[in-house]
Computed example of a mutant assay.
Amino acid sequence: MDERRPSLHPAVAEIRRAVRAALADLDPKATVVVALSGGADSLALAAAVAFEAPRARRDALAVIVDHGLQEASAAVAASAAETARGLGLAVRVVRVDVGDEGGPEAAARSARYGALRTEAAERAPAVIVTGHTLDDQAETVLLGLARGSGAASLQGMAAVSDLDGIPLVRPLLDVRRETTRAACTAQGLSWWDDPHNTDDRFARVRVRERVLPALEAEIGPGIAEALARTATQLREDAAAFDEMIAETIEDIVEPAEAGIAVSVAALAANPAALRHRIIRHVVAAEFHQSLTRAQTLEVARLVTHWTGQGPIDLPGCRAARVGGRIEITAR
């Protein structure tokens, strides 16, 4: 008689490995809060967490956020909850009110992450894990490219980020969407296809359904992987720049009345890329505002093309050259 154990499906194995690696780098006492929508990506993630968390002696919880934006949203949430319980996960279903600030996608995202953070904070220490895949990363990079806001918009999503003091982890950023579906099928898990994911009113859907397939057809396979690699490389470059700025900024910045001042000579001595990053960093750190490239260049001209021009109005602040300093003050 053949006593061999049945082989594990490669898709299931890949996702479990990704989750295992992500959990290994986290606080060993942290509860794992899984953002579960009922879609294939988050369901495959939930199944992997349900398998890996007990082996790492961790508590795990699936949080299903019902946005109430579709007629059947309560039934979808209930079905996802039932599936999660069948996997052995504790479950919380949270109904949220979605506003309209920033548009429907942004408002729903804000409400969702607010609910996830609240649930995680109640179980601190805790980490939130989401099912974003390599395909999501590629779409994010292309959308950033369309915005044209520089390298920062091409960095995509970080594998680990911070959500108001709670670690937000994306274990599946190296996993293709087709793999999550294969993993669900192999484990007999039925997923829900959100109709918004095929609604071409949304830019992300158009990128997913039209732009990426066209690029693959015209340029060749591997576009999504190449875009994801680009995001990783740019994120590494940005981290290096941040270290350089941290080392530089202490020597060239000093307090000013109602703001902060930066040495003109020190800014002029730096390469343009670093100079622009320092300007953006100072405004973001001091006034919690983001500058466009045009605004950044206008401030930089106070250093590189000084002709006696007056103050520059910026979001939440004003920049002016005063002697040998650029003073950035509240307005």
Rank of each mutant, 00 (worst) to 15 (best):
L61K: 01
S161D: 14
H196I: 11
R16E: 15
R204T: 12
T140K: 03
A124V: 06
Q289A: 15
L172S: 03
A272V: 13
V94H: 00
S7F: 04
R280E: 15
E254L: 10
W306S: 09
D135K: 01
V34S: 02
L302S: 05
E236Y: 04
Q309K: 08
M157Q: 13
I15N: 00
T31M: 14
T130D: 11
D162P: 00
T198G: 05
G68H: 04
I128E: 01
I326E: 08
A30P: 01
A74D: 14
E250I: 14
T133F: 02
R5V: 10
D174A: 15
E225D: 11
A30F: 04
Q137C: 07
A50E: 10
A62N: 07
R181Q: 14
D200A: 14
S190Y: 02
R112P: 01
A72T: 12
S149L: 13
I326D: 08
A284K: 10
F241H: 05
A239S: 13
E243Y: 04
A246R: 15
H281T: 14
V127K: 00
Q137R: 10
L134M: 13
P104R: 07
E139W: 05
A115H: 06
T83H: 00
A226T: 13
T307M: 13
D164N: 11
V303S: 02
A48L: 03
R280T: 13
R301L: 12
I278N: 01
R147S: 11
E257A: 14
L227S: 02
G39I: 08
A269M: 10
L212I: 15
D136P: 03
V34H: 00
E3G: 03
V322Y: 03
I15S: 00
C184V: 01
A30Y: 02
L154F: 06
G220W: 07
E286A: 12
V299F: 11
L215A: 14
D2I: 11
R123S: 10
V129Y: 00
I278A: 01
A330H: 07
E82V: 09
Q70E: 15
G38R: 00
A11G: 09
D66M: 03
A294Y: 05
I326W: 05
Y113P: 00
